[in-house]
Every structure is written in C-alpha cells, then in structure tokens.
Amino acid sequence: MTGTISETTSGKIALITGASRGLGRSAALHLARAGVHVIGTYNSSKTAADEVAREIEAEGVSAVMLPFDAEAEDFGAFAASLAEALQQTFGRESFDFLLNNAGIGYNRAIAETEAAQLDLLYRVHLRTPFLLTQALLPMITDGGAVLFVSSGLARFTLPGYGAYASMKGAVEVLTRYAAQELGPRGIRVNCLAPGAIATDFSGGVVRDNAEVNAKVAGMIALGRVGQPEDIGAGVAALLSDGMGWMSGQRVELSGGQGL
C-alpha cells in the first residue's frame, strides 16, 4: 500500500499528532514516501522527534516537529505555532490532512478503574481530538481530510479495556458527525481502527511478551499481530485520492481479529 498518494496529492501537507514513535511515526514515513510533507507533534522526546524528522526528509519532503501536550488546555496557542510553522516552512496558511493519532494505553478492569484515570483517557482520546480539530478547522484546506484513530477494541472485547475502548467508541461517533458537518467544504472524515499492533503501546506487551503475542495472534484470521507498517500503509491509502469518495466510515485494520 505504500506510495498510494496520487500525483495530485503529492506535495500536500499532513499534520500528525504523536508522530515521534509507533503508529504516528509509521504514518509519517509512509506519507513522506508518497510525497506528502509532514508536520508532526511530540510530547516529551525532542530527540526522537528530530530523528523522525531526519527520516522524513530523507524521503525528499519537508518535516517540522512541534511540541504538543495531548492534555492541553489552550489549543489556540498550538494553532498559532502551527500557523507560524506553515508560513515559515511552506509559505502557506493551510494544510491538507489532519491525523488525530496521539494517545495513551490503559488496561484495568472497570471495577478497578479510578475516576482520575477515566478523566485522563477522556481528555487524551476524546476531548483533545475534538477540540484540536475544532481549533484547526479554519486552517484545513477545503477538499482535505481528517482521520481519527479508534481501536479494534471498540468492536471486539478483551478484559481490562472497557474504559479505553469506550473513549474510542465515542471517537467513532464523532467521526460520523464531523463527516456530516464538514462535507459542504469537501472535507472527508474517516476513522481508522487498528487491531493488536507490536509497538511500545501499553508498555509494549504485544511486542515484547512472546506469550501474549502468540495468544493474540491466535485470535487473528491472518495469524499474526500487526506491525506499525501495516497501519502506516493504511493511513496513506485512506488519505489517497483513490479514497476520495469515502467519508464518515470506520475502517478496521486488524488482520481479522476477533471475527
């Protein structure tokens, strides 16, 4: 699926939250290989972000990395930083693709979930994508695209993920409403729902624990857990011109997990 962005889309600009590692990094690199410039965000590791920027630029496109706190209160301040970066690096006042990717993992039974942790999941996984998208709407090009990230756990269930999956279910509802409201501007809005992926998410348990990896692989039709490249390729495909008639949809990339 790499390189699926058409020539008419090449040279456009994508903003990716959480681009310094995991699925965000993979999405950034796949889009870069397809000719899309990347503005990424990172939370704490500027070193990791700078390394990803170098990898992106090695693909022949421009990269900018901006600090961003997924628990932020002032989205206007980030919008101002983004506007400055757009003008300085690209001579533009707008960008084309918004990928709301940044997130945190959480695994605890409903009976053991603390109110503070539930509030944190809400702020990171629902409040921030909602308010960030709202703040950046004037800067998204008409005919552009917004892509939210949900989870396969919003469809199938695994013990301990009730709080996390509930937030992702809300993101899927948000996707449909945003698609309806932004449709008059030609902005398509969709939602990507990854299955189990071998990253450092949730402490890297799927990636680093062989027993867990094998157990989860046994639940997947294609017989393996996903890799970051599977999701990065999917992002590039969903933002391609070939998907220009799709909006308001949930697309799961899970290898057939929990069928």
Rank of each mutant, 00 (worst) to 15 (best):
T2V: 14
T4F: 13
S6V: 11
E7Y: 12
T8I: 15
S10H: 11
S10R: 14
K12F: 12
I13Q: 00
I16E: 06
T17Q: 03
S20Y: 04
G22E: 04
A27V: 02
A28C: 07
L29V: 05
H30N: 14
H30I: 04
L31P: 03
L31S: 03
R33H: 15
V36G: 08
V36R: 13
H37V: 03
G40E: 04
G40P: 07
G40H: 03
T41V: 11
T47Y: 11
T47M: 15
A48N: 14
A49L: 10
A49C: 08
D50R: 12
E51S: 14
I56E: 00
I56P: 05
V61R: 05
S62V: 11
V64D: 00
L66P: 02
E71C: 10
D74E: 07
D74L: 07
D74Q: 08
F75V: 09
A77D: 11
S81Y: 03
E84Y: 09
L86G: 06
Q88S: 13
S94N: 14
F95G: 02
D96W: 09
N101M: 12
G103I: 06
Y106A: 10
R108G: 09
R108F: 08
A115V: 04
Q117T: 10
L120S: 14
L121Y: 01
R123G: 02
R123P: 00
R123K: 08
V124E: 06
V124L: 11
R127I: 10
P129A: 10
F130R: 14
L132S: 03
T133Q: 05
Q134F: 08
L136T: 12
M139A: 13
M139K: 12
I140E: 00
D142A: 14
G143T: 10
G143L: 10
V146C: 06
L147A: 02
S150R: 01
S151H: 02
S151R: 02
S151I: 03
R155T: 14
L158A: 14
G162P: 10
G162R: 06
G162E: 04
A163L: 00
A163F: 00
S166A: 15
K168C: 11
G169Y: 12
A170K: 01
A170V: 01
E172D: 04
V173H: 15
L174Y: 09
L174M: 15
T175K: 11
T175W: 06
R176L: 01
Y177P: 12
E181T: 12
N190R: 14
C191T: 07
C191L: 07
C191E: 05
C191W: 05
L192V: 04
G195T: 10
A198W: 03
A198F: 00
A198K: 04
T199H: 13
T199W: 13
S202I: 14
G203T: 05
G204W: 07
V206P: 06
D208M: 13
N209Y: 06
N209Q: 06
E211F: 00
V212A: 05
N213M: 01
A217S: 12
M219R: 15
R224L: 01
V225R: 08
P228F: 00
G234M: 13
A236C: 04
A237P: 00
A237E: 05
L238Q: 05
L239T: 06
S240T: 01
S240F: 01
G242C: 09
M243N: 08
G244E: 00
W245E: 09
S247P: 02
V251H: 09
L253W: 13
L253N: 09
S254Y: 07
Q257S: 14
Q257H: 15
G258K: 06
